[in-house]
């Protein structure tokens, strides 16, 4: 450690802020050298004010991003779990409205929660909701613009994904789980969802200022996901048809594309 930096304080304090403390001895060990009370005496209790501020404010930040996970786990469990996550994945930016990207993966890999496999996808829905809420203000692709494309050019069309739009495919009823657990009122009003696994998908989008979450059929989800990944319209239709047993409703898919708010522009030099 360089002496000139040591004097500045942050390198000494930082190490003691997030370490778990189970006893007075632990706290004494976490206390940085030279951190004192008014009479120059070591002041672990005073230092713990900062430790508490740091941890409780970060738990609050994570909880505001993941209200449904917080609701599902209950306050005490969420706080303990969040502390564990925060110690392993502390924020790397002062912009906390972007904090917690790794939380879904953390939930997936947390052995005590292995019996609750829907938690991770519920967290992914909450993360997509947050990204949509703060996404750039970009108008959606207008149906008129799509209608103006010449018939022989439609097949090669590619589309630019809207910055607020995300498609989440999950075997779990994450839309219902999320709706029911975001608030206390919803928990009391809505019935518990049927947790049997299935082929499900949701679209998260923000046509104006309000984020919307809607169910997609598995076919729509595969189609829109292929387009979001940059496939051409004909390529995306091929992807869907490869999955379908019978006839796909191509007109219905094109209608869902036009109204999805999942795209903002055609990928070519046109005016729209």
């Amino acid at each position: 450690m360089r002496d000139d930096h040591t004097a500045l304080g942050s390198s000494r304090l930082a190490g003691g802020l997030l370490v778990p403390v189970a006893s007075g001895d632990d706290l004494a060990r976490a206390l940085p050298a030279g951190v004192v009370g008014p009479e120059g005496q070591p002041a672990p209790r005073r230092f713990s004010v900062y430790r508490n501020n740091v941890m409780s404010s970060l738990i609050e930040a994570l909880g505001s991003v993941y209200p449904a996970i917080r609701g599902l786990l209950g306050e005490d469990y969420f706080k303990a779990l969040a502390a564990e996550f925060i110690r392993g994945h502390p924020p790397r930016s002062p912009v906390l409205l972007d904090y917690g990207a790794e939380f879904a993966g953390f939930l997936e890999g947390f052995p005590p929660l292995a019996d609750y496999p829907y938690l991770a996808d519920t967290a992914r829905l909450e993360w997509a909701w947050l990204k949509a809420y703060h996404a750039a203000d970009v108008p959606g692709l207008s149906p008129a613009c799509l209608a103006g494309v010449a018939a022989d050019a439609l097949g090669e069309l590619t589309l630019r994904p809207h910055p607020a739009a995300a498609i989440l495919m999950s075997p779990w009823p994450v839309h219902e789980i999320w709706q029911r657990n975001r608030t206390q009122d919803a928990r009391e009003a809505l019935p518990p969802p049927d947790l049997s696994p299935g082929d499900r998908a949701v679209l998260i989008r923000r046509p104006e200022l309000e984020v919307e979450v809607t169910d997609l059929s598995p076919v729509e989800a595969r189609f829109l996901t292929a387009l979001q990944a940059g496939e051409t319209l004909s390529g995306a239709l091929d992807t869907v048809l490869a999955h379908e047993e019978g006839e796909a409703d191509i007109a219905g898919l094109l209608a869902s594309l036009a109204t999805s708010s999942a795209f903002c522009a055609l990928h070519r030099g046109s005016a729209c």
Partner: peptide
Amino acid sequence: AWSTHEGTYFNDLLPLPYTEQTLAR
């Protein structure tokens, strides 16, 4: 105050000693 150290953001207004070195920084 400080809130970031070695890239970790602590989301609190943390204290520093008042010396000629910290003043210059």
